[in-house]
């Protein structure tokens, strides 16, 4: 049993001051990831700063038609929100396809962004893991890596980011607002998570003392016609092998707008910009969808246990785009 201090501030200034003053402090949202990791001894904060008492629970419509989502909003509330369901159905579907209803009732938006990989060896402190212990090696490479990345991995780490919500946020050009004793800054979601390179233990652009206060979504008209599709080892309550968030706008048979992002394939939610470029102006056909998927996955690399995900990703991209085309979005 390891002891730690617990505080529950009720204003943001006090929360960021506490964490800035204590290098070993960590913010606590719903606890569905951090409590688990603390129990396993993977995370060992000396102080836990509960952020669920902070006034970060609003979902507000922005003047430009976008949405500002407080970092403390629970995943289930966000997925059920009227405007999310009608304007960003890919986001509602992504959240609803993650974890279980009980977990979504607990999990916060801020915590979801910062949830850590589900690579088995990261959780097993008897195994070598560069993410947990830089320089120790990577047991997944020659071990079980079915969930591992096929895009943007490095020799040091092949772990994938497990979030479903973040995949839709990547497709929607979300912006993360963060605050610390140094002030407020805004980080585009596309650049929020990092690829592993030589430093797989540094997973985001966030400094240890920065609090996520909100996520902002711009108005994205094409997103009203969107879906999220998740492929996994069982039909519910499992992490993605591959997932796709897709939005499509088609006029006179040609693609006039597209948003595409992939989950389960990289250390970050993967915005498929190359595929989007390939789709724009192309005829809205199966062949264009396949070509776009191939362009995006040209640099994909697999290991024996996860190379199947390259083809799976290709087929899932095509199937999701086809469904948006023929059945429309999920709204």
């Amino acid at each position: 049993m390891r002891s730690f201090a617990y505080v529950r501030p009720d204003d943001v200034a006090a929360a960021v001051r506490t964490v800035a003053a204590q290098p070993d402090a960590k913010f606590l949202g719903g606890g569905t990831n951090l409590v688990d990791l603390m129990r396993e001894g993977i995370e060992r904060p000396a102080t836990v700063v509960d952020v669920t008492g902070l006034p970060l629970e609003e979902i507000e419509e922005l003047p430009d038609g976008g949405l500002r989502i407080g970092a403390g909003v629970r995943n289930s509330r966000l997925a059920g929100h009227r405007l999310v369901r009608s304007r960003y159905p890919m986001l509602a579907q992504a959240i609803l396809s993650g974890a279980s209803a009980q977990l979504r009732n607990m999990a916060t938006v801020g915590g979801n962004l910062l949830q850590r990989t589900r690579c088995l060896y990261f959780y097993d402190d008897a195994a070598a893991c560069n993410k947990r212990e830089p320089g120790a090696g990577c047991a997944a490479r020659d071990g079980f890596h079915r969930s591992g990345a096929i895009l943007g991995a490095s020799p040091t780490c092949i772990a994938a980011h497990p979030s479903d919500m973040c995949v839709a946020l990547a497709a929607l050009d979300a912006v993360v607002e963060v605050e610390s004793v140094r002030g407020v800054r805004r980080i585009p979601l596309a650049g929020f998570h990092r690829l592993p390179g030589d430093t797989p233990h540094i997973e985001t652009e966030l400094a240890a003392d920065e609090l996520i206060t909100a996520v902002e979504l711009p108005a994205v008209p094409v997103a009203a016609n969107s879906r999220y599709r998740k492929v996994r080892d069982r039909a519910s309550y499992a992490f993605a092998l591959v997932s796709v968030a897709a939005a499509l706008d088609v006029r006179d048979g040609a693609v006039t707008g597209a948003r595409l992002a992939l989950g389960g394939v990289a250390a970050k939610p993967w915005r498929a910009s190359k595929a989007e470029q390939a789709l724009l102006g192309a005829p809205a056909t199966e062949e264009s969808f396949r070509h776009a998927a191939e362009v995006e996955l040209a640099s994909a690399e697999g290991l024996p246990g996860n190379a199947f995900k390259i083809d799976l990703a290709r087929r899932t991209i095509v199937a999701t785009l086809r469904q948006v085309l023929t059945e429309g979005g999920a709204a």
Partner: peptide
Amino acid sequence: SAIGMLAEHGNGVPSAATEHLD
């Protein structure tokens, strides 16, 4: 869990099996 689930359903909360989110 079923008690909570029925309350969620009663409040109009959708699920991943819900075809039309709107």
